[in-house]
Simulated assay, not measured.
Amino acid sequence: MSTSSIESPSAVATSEFDRDTAVTLRESGVYDAELSAGWTIIAAVNGGYLLALLGRALGDHLPHPDPFTISAHYLTPSVPGPAVIRTETVRTGRTLSTGTASLFQYAEDGTELERIRVLASYGDLDTLTDDVRTTATPPAIPPAGQCFSAADNPDPRIPGSSAIVDRLDLRLDPACVGWAVGAPSGKGEMRAWFDLADGRAHDPLSLLLAVDALPPTSFELGLKGWTPTVELTTHVRRRPAPGPLRVSITTRNLAGGFLEEDAEVWDSADRLVAQSRQLARAPRD
């Protein structure tokens, strides 16, 4: 077991993201955590933040350091406050190890409520070869200075908390912000430059956040409100180069009250460093 991902009681992480995703080992495979209100959006704690928190616990529990693939089922909405994460090793191999993790919170009567359950395979990104054969291309986004930040035109018609916005440096592609001025494009697309507001460098854990940190594509489809994630699978492909990330999310099909979101995350070296697909419930007007 590695101990590098656990914040000791006397250590003070310089990044808010690291402090808020810190886990404390209670006993073998069991970790205590505190879900921060700083990562809430509309009605609940953000799913990408939660995925990073569970990813940190699994990275400590498993013998390999980096998430290669992690699939999460969001069972009930998480709220700020104490939580416990229970991890289990499923299999350990030479290059990959697989484990599960569940995050629990407490009802008013003290009983545990399972919020999220994940299955993940971990490896070592530093051992990957440089061989790349791809037809994927980075998203075309205007320079960050020509994009829109949350301060440019926040939309007060979306009720609830938007605390997570203050922890991110998002610069949205002007082609994807029609929703903010009452003129959604009708296209299921969202693109942005992505950084953490405190300047923390990107790593595999921040990639888990990035795939679920942009406004939902449903906004550009003309729907407002909470878009809760049902299931989210993320593939981490490379350790990101220093510098801002570009995130592109698309939806091709909203039907029966559900939609998919396919995300690509590109680093400053034009490498595809993460991919994800999630199923989400469409907002209910």
Rank of each mutant, 00 (worst) to 15 (best):
S2N: 13
S5I: 15
S5P: 07
E7D: 09
V12I: 14
V12Y: 09
F17V: 15
D20H: 14
S28T: 14
A33Q: 12
E34M: 15
L35A: 13
S36M: 04
S36F: 10
S36Q: 07
S36I: 03
A37G: 06
G38M: 09
G38N: 11
T40C: 07
I41P: 00
I42C: 07
I42W: 10
A44L: 01
Y49N: 12
L51Q: 15
L54G: 09
L54W: 06
G55M: 01
A57K: 08
L62N: 06
P63R: 14
H64F: 10
P65V: 04
D66L: 03
S78C: 05
S78F: 05
S78A: 14
S78P: 00
V79T: 15
V79S: 15
P82T: 07
A83D: 05
R86E: 12
T87C: 15
T92W: 14
T92M: 09
T92H: 08
L96Q: 12
S97H: 05
G99C: 06
A107V: 01
D109K: 05
E112T: 01
E112V: 10
E114N: 04
D124W: 02
L125N: 05
D126G: 15
D131W: 08
R133V: 15
R133Q: 13
T135I: 13
A136Y: 10
P138M: 12
P139Q: 12
A144K: 15
G145Y: 05
G145Q: 10
G145C: 06
C147F: 04
S149E: 08
A150S: 10
A151I: 11
P154R: 04
P154D: 12
A163S: 09
V165I: 07
R167V: 11
D173E: 00
D173F: 04
P174Y: 03
P174T: 03
C176Y: 06
G178E: 02
V181Q: 07
G182T: 04
G182K: 11
G182F: 02
A183W: 04
S185G: 03
G186M: 02
G188H: 00
A192T: 05
W193Q: 02
A197H: 04
G199T: 12
R200E: 02
A201H: 14
L207C: 01
L208D: 12
L208P: 13
L209S: 11
V211D: 04
L214D: 13
P215Y: 11
P216T: 07
L221S: 00
W226P: 04
L232S: 04
T234D: 09
T234N: 10
H235N: 08
R237A: 11
R237D: 04
R237P: 00
A241K: 03
P242V: 06
S248P: 01
I249L: 06
T251K: 03
L254W: 02
G256N: 00
F258I: 13
F258D: 05
L259R: 02
E261Q: 13
E261T: 09
E261L: 11
V273Y: 05
S276D: 12
L279S: 09
R281S: 11
A282F: 00
A282G: 03
P283R: 02
R284F: 08
R284P: 01
R284A: 14
D285G: 09
